[in-house]
Design a binder for these strands. Structure first.
Lengths: 196, 196
DNA sequence: TTTATATGGTTCCATATAGAACGAATATCG
DNA sequence: CGATATTCGTTCTATATGGAACCATATAAA
């Protein structure tokens, strides 16, 4: 299994700023007033008029940066490239543009990623029978091997992230996030195109 | 108030892939089975072994992309640049490296952003008295005007995001997020440097 | 059929990005 | 005090990024 891949540029991005109006009673750091988390980060998270967004961004950041950094080092794959593999592992036979529209990567970036993965032998591609514009992508064993190795790490990080929550709280959180996510579809899908 | 700023490159990034192991009972789309949200996005969110992370990323994405797109169009400011302004509005007198370490933008990127904002007259900078390496940044009226105009939009987006939740649910969510965020500090701060 | 429009994917190219090396101001320790 | 190691910020430079133009296929209208 060719887990090599020439080590390349590390592309961390994201950032965890901003947030939005709080109708909500801020439960200030309260008890866990924190060791000595720098005063500015503290402000960004707790004195931010957009507190929810700030926390979402913050969590997404803390989760993504180390993981994709590791992916880059371990497999020599950029974030987009790994996303393609991960996407196919979750739902094989999808097309590049579907991944693009679902993940907000521009399609040319996806195109490059796909081509590199093809060259590396991690995925395969064949034109769709009906619509020959569409390129059906499938995960090859080598690609799956990468996913198989990476998944535990991603899962582990999520566990770490959820560690402070009880099982009930996790279910609660899962439910609340689901509500938000599902609602997003109804609106955005129509009024303002998804992204890309 | 110079809200001009030459329109420049739009830099959306982020992406909303991945997720992590679910000890949690997935409350499948259930009732809200959704209009016709594309099958792949559906898989990414519900059939993903890293469901939490996937949702976090998804939400962060849906929130950030349109907002920063607007910021770019309206003010001609890149994401980092706006982040600097936003940061100072929340906590004036912070230094570039503090913003860097708190938001995961590399410090040279911050450096450029700061210099451009200086040139545009949005912020001011003066060396700290004690440690003359440090550059204290402050928000100028022109910069605050930008913040003042942008905030409602950011706040509005957050409201939209929270729309599907009742007030109780919002408080619940706020609390759960806070728990996760606060816990993150204890560990990461020590074992693995924040970022940057 | 021809013309116009939309969509998947690639290519081109200006530019923003981020690693690395650097300079200046500190801090630490002998 | 002088030497070494840190830290804040900048400059340099290779490269990844993403907007726009493009080609091919497909669909709709005429």
């Amino acid at each position: 299994m060719p887990l090599t891949g020439t080590a390349r540029r590390k592309t961390q991005q994201d950032a965890a700023e901003s947030g939005t109006s709080a109708l909500v009673a801020e439960s200030e750091p309260a008890r866990l007033d924190r060791k000595r988390l720098d005063v500015f980060t503290h402000a960004r998270l707790w004195k931010n008029p957009c507190g929810f967004a700030a926390r979402f961004n913050y969590i997404a950041l803390r989760y993504n940066v180390p993981l994709y950094g590791w992916v880059e080092e371990r497999f020599g794959l950029s974030r987009v490239e790994f996303v393609v593999i991960y996407s196919l592992a979750i739902h094989d036979g999808v097309t590049a543009s579907e991944i693009a529209s679902s993940t907000a990567f521009p399609k040319n970036t996806l195109s490059r990623a796909v081509n590199r993965l093809l060259k590396l032998g991690y995925i395969a591609r064949k034109a769709d029978g009906d619509d020959r514009r569409m390129q059906i992508l499938t995960l090859l064993p080598a690609g799956r091997a990468i996913y198989d190795e990476a998944l535990p790490r991603f899962a582990g990080m999520e566990q770490e992230m959820l560690a402070p929550l009880s099982l009930v709280e996790r279910e609660m959180l899962s439910m609340l996030l689901a509500k938000v996510v599902l609602a997003t579809f109804g609106t955005d899908q129509a009024e303002q195109e998804p992204q890309e």
